[in-house]
Amino acid sequence: MKRDSMAYTVLFTFLVCVFFVFFLSLANESTKDRVASNRRLAERSAVLSAMGIPYTKDTIDTTYEKSVSTVKASTGELYRASVGGKNVYAQRFAGPGLWGTITIILAVDAPVEHLMGLQVVSQNETPGLGGRIDEPWFKTQFKDEKIGPQGIRVVQGSGKGDKDPNNSQVDAVTGASRTSQSMEALVNRGIDDFRKAKNEGVLQ
């Protein structure tokens, strides 16, 4: 068969595709469980951190299974755990950021008066600017923050973190106004959902 004939071209392309795709599927299949377990651990450790439950790298699964249960509300599935004798609820929320979807785990106390914590599960914001929402100084601002009538405000502050847990506001990320606004919208939408779930009697 001539190298530039139609039949050879079609046959060659077909065989080359089969060959390479076979090895790709093999690689994908053999790492599937590992990838799934990485994802599960990331999600579970985010839930635990948001709720303020201590864990170590090796005890993520056992701690999670021991302390976290799920309850259903019309707004979705909520995680429930008892922390320091009080019930804490968490839920996964996703919303638009500047470049892509931001997914967070947000935790509140049962009366929805205080945030318990926030963890970022995934984001595609600008590395070094919006991407800093994943840094500890930004996330710890939400811990024990009092929820105001309007929810939480993300404001222009020192850019180093708001230390007052009673003013219902946190510092925005310097140079990332759009990402900060997205976070504000996302957190407040989450608070609204928690309030709805509370009115349904799910949060106790």
């Binding site: 090895f23 790709l24 690689a27 994908n28 790492t31 590992r34 990838v35 990485n38 994802r39 990331a42």
Partner: peptide
């Protein structure tokens, strides 16, 4: 894609 798979599995 091989690189991507390896990173996802071993360096999440």
């Amino acid at each position: 894609i091989i690189i991507d798979i390896v990173l996802r599995a071993y360096l999440p």
